[in-house]
Simulated assay, not measured.
Amino acid sequence: MHQSAAEHPEDAEGNAGDAARTPSPLDEVTFRKVVGRFPTGVTIVTTLSGGVDHAMTVSSFASLSLDPLLVLICVEKIARFHDAVLDAGVFGVSILGEDGEEASRAFARRGRTLEGQFDRWSHRRGTLGLALFDAAVATLECRTTAVHDGGDHSIVVGGVVSARMFRAVPPLVYEQGRYRRMAP
């Protein structure tokens, strides 16, 4: 049912924003622009599969449950990391601080060599033997409890086995295709 501007006075102001409310054709470009308006934190997720460290920058990370303690990550099915994290059954999450942009960019690059990939980055091994970044403001280690289909991604749910906070600096944020810093 169509309602007139008189029925919704907040829409009757004639703001330039009216054009922004007009639906655009739904396609991948439009979708990416729309969801890009939602700022996210930036993490580097790690796993250890077959004795080889794997890592990937991930912004699709979220807390899921307090009872039990669960988080989730979304991993593109064609990413090399996808099969490694499913095979390993464990993953580590390093939540990056505002000074973590360089590391984020490095681990977002597809096809980089796995050998020596952590050489430039100060890190330590956690409880599960996973690489965790010292530049993180906080880290978690998880055991995979479920994997769900998410279109071209898999939604990997992990039960948290360790969680630590390290530095009192603002987190690195990503929004509209750019890294952002939180205002003090």
Rank of each mutant, 00 (worst) to 15 (best):
W121N: 01
A84K: 00
V85C: 08
S65H: 01
R143H: 12
A108Y: 02
L48H: 12
A146C: 02
A6E: 15
P39T: 08
A55F: 03
L26G: 13
R37H: 11
L132C: 12
S4D: 14
Q176T: 11
M182S: 06
V85Y: 03
G97L: 02
V85D: 05
D53N: 12
G36E: 04
P171I: 02
E13Q: 09
S65R: 04
G129Y: 08
G14T: 05
C74N: 06
R105V: 10
G89A: 03
A168P: 06
A131D: 11
A183M: 11
D18A: 10
S63T: 15
A138V: 08
L130A: 11
H123V: 14
R110P: 08
L114G: 15
R32H: 13
T57L: 03
I73N: 06
A12V: 04
D67E: 13
R143Y: 05
V157G: 09
S63A: 15
A168T: 11
M165Q: 12
D11S: 13
M165Y: 09
G17W: 13
P25W: 02
P68M: 03
R180C: 12
V34H: 07
E13V: 10
S94R: 09
R32G: 10
Y174N: 09
R32V: 05
R32S: 11
R32E: 08
S122C: 01
L140H: 04
L26S: 13
F81T: 00
D27A: 07
H2Q: 15
F38I: 13
V161A: 09
H123P: 09
V75E: 06
L172T: 06
H2R: 14
L132Y: 09
M1G: 14
T139I: 14
Q3R: 15
D99R: 05
D83H: 08
R181P: 02
F166C: 04
A106H: 14
R105W: 05
